[in-house]
Design a protein around this nucleic acid. Structure first.
Lengths: 189, 189
DNA sequence: GTCTATAAGGCGATAGAC
DNA sequence: GTCTATCGCCTTATAGAC
């Protein structure tokens, strides 16, 4: 059963993706969810409170999505990274997490926390993959695993930004593809 | 002489960098510039009108900055690209142009125009550098010049996003550095 | 060109009845 | 738990005097 609380969180997740934090008002959430103002402030003490809950939930979703994808792949490090890079992404919609980082209010520690957790966790995951590949001598050590992990995340986030600015919805796939080609040149057999 | 109009544009440029478009109000601009409300709406018919002027000016600045840097460099394509990648960047401040793309109101055509012009122009500049390098056989043709140009811009923009999310001010420099190493492997002698 | 006063509406949040 | 009414503040402007 979907509780009112869950409904609010899910609606906030949608709106954070579509409009970010600052431009999403409690009224937007109420209008879309059909929940009343009284209920809102019964379950959450503030807009920020709801947003933090929504962002934590979103972070869990995306990390689970990643872990599920990687565990399904039976290939080597390169296949796993490619599986992730090749997920379809729409630049005009923006990254479900990264979309929010530029909002002025998101300088706040509480709002930053789930963002930090998401990107730090993803960084750990990629670092782990690259480290093991380097240990097994299947990946060149030209670039440290950690730096390569940061670059992997940045290529995707940057594709969203450039794609949105130039109204090119498919550009994240293009940058991911180019990056895959560069990664392949680091492959050892 | 700094006209009132110029003062408003310069102040808006600052605030767009610091707070983005949606979170910057006419009142913020007036407060910081010392200009009165009457003057504001005498020179500009709306907040959007001023923002467009400020963004066009910012695009001109950044393109001129790039052209000046590149014309000073006497090295090959790699040196030129590195000179740009090595410019100091602070992730926590955000890119002076890219910072704004995620604001909900920036779906608007007029606000998108200067952003599009900036990124398209930068893309052209990098494409030109990479194309000539490939023509002279000094750069591998593994990745088309245009795709490499997109990737170059994306790496920087993505660094800003990941850096801000994880509160790591120097991370754009790190991703730029990693990318330079990958680019170097495409160098032909 | 610049000033002050005012407007209509949205914002985030609270009060108190049911 | 949910409702409606209300609050004080901020927003993007506009009006009209100087």
């Amino acid at each position: 059963m979907a509780t009112t609380r869950d409904l609010l969180v899910d609606t906030m997740k949608q709106l954070l993706w579509e409009r970010g934090y600052d431009a999403t008002s409690p009224n937007h959430v109420l209008e879309r969810s059909g929940v009343g103002k009284g209920s809102f402030y019964h379950h959450f003490k503030s807009k920020k409170d709801l947003a933090v809950a929504a962002m934590e939930a979103r972070a869990d979703d995306l990390i689970a999505e990643f872990d599920s994808l990687i565990s399904q792949s039976s290939g080597d490090w390169f296949d796993k990274v490619c599986a992730y890079l090749q997920l379809p992404r729409h630049a005009l919609k923006g990254c479900r997490m990264g979309r929010i980082v530029q909002d002025p209010s998101v300088g706040d520690d509480q709002l930053l926390a789930p963002l930090d957790r998401y990107f730090s966790t993803m960084h750990q995951r990629f670092s782990g993959i690259y480290q093991e590949a380097q240990r097994q001598d299947k990946l060149a050590k030209t670039i440290p695993a950690e730096a390569l992990a940061t670059l992997t995340l940045s290529v995707i986030q940057g594709g969203f930004v450039v794609g949105k600015a130039t109204s090119q919805d498919q550009i994240v796939d293009e940058t991911s593809g180019s990056f895959m080609t560069l990664l392949e040149s680091l492959k050892r057999h």
